[in-house]
Computed example of a mutant assay.
Amino acid sequence: MDTDTVLRPVAVLVGALVVTLIAGWLLDLLLRRADARHGETPLWGLLRRCRMPFRLLLCTTLLYGAHRRVGIAPDYVFAMGRALTLVMIASAAWLLVRIATAVVDSSYARFAAQHPNDARVRRVRTQVTLIQRAVTAVVVVVAAAAMLLTFPPMRAVGASVLASAGVLGIVAGIAAQSTLGNLFAGLQIAFGDTVRIGDTVVVDEEWGTVEEITLTFLVVRTWDERRITMPVSYFTGKPYENWSRGGAQMTGTVFWHLDHSAPLDLMREQLRRILEEIPEWDGRTGSLAVTDTTPHTIQVRAVVTAKDGSDVWTVRCQVRERLIAWLVAHHPYALPRIATAPADPRPGAGAA
Rank of each mutant, 00 (worst) to 15 (best):
P116C: 15
C59I: 03
P153G: 01
A349C: 02
S160C: 11
G169N: 03
L327K: 03
V304Y: 04
L31M: 11
L148F: 15
H296D: 14
L180Y: 09
C59Y: 00
A156R: 13
N182A: 05
A144Q: 10
R268F: 02
V128S: 02
D292V: 02
E269N: 15
S233F: 03
I170G: 08
V220E: 04
P53D: 04
A145D: 10
G283D: 06
S178A: 14
G286R: 02
T340K: 05
I338G: 08
R196G: 14
L218Y: 09
L183D: 01
R316K: 08
F217V: 08
A159S: 15
R268Y: 06
Q127R: 07
P53A: 07
V315H: 00
R32I: 00
G71M: 02
H260K: 12
G286K: 00
W223A: 06
W281I: 01
L168K: 01
S310W: 13
R48L: 04
W281C: 06
R320D: 03
C317S: 04
D265T: 11
R8N: 14
Q270F: 07
R272K: 15
G252P: 03
R33L: 15
F191N: 09
L264K: 11
M154Q: 09
I89T: 05
V202Q: 07
R301H: 09
T3I: 15
S310G: 15
A143D: 13
F255D: 15
H331E: 11
K238M: 12
A176S: 09
T5G: 06
S160D: 07
G350V: 13
V195R: 00
G166C: 05
A119I: 08
D282L: 02
A190N: 00
G45F: 11
R32M: 09
A339Y: 02
G198V: 08
V135T: 04
T150D: 12
I174P: 13
V6M: 11
Y64Q: 14
H296I: 13
L29W: 11
D224I: 05
P116Q: 03
F151I: 08
Q132N: 14
L30N: 07
R322M: 01
R196C: 02
F184Y: 10
A90R: 07
Q132Y: 01
V138W: 08
R337H: 15
A165G: 02
V300R: 01
G81Q: 05
P345Q: 11
T293Y: 05
W25Q: 05
P42T: 09
R155I: 10
V328L: 10
D35M: 12
L86N: 12
P332G: 12
T216R: 10
V10F: 11
Y64P: 10
A79F: 05
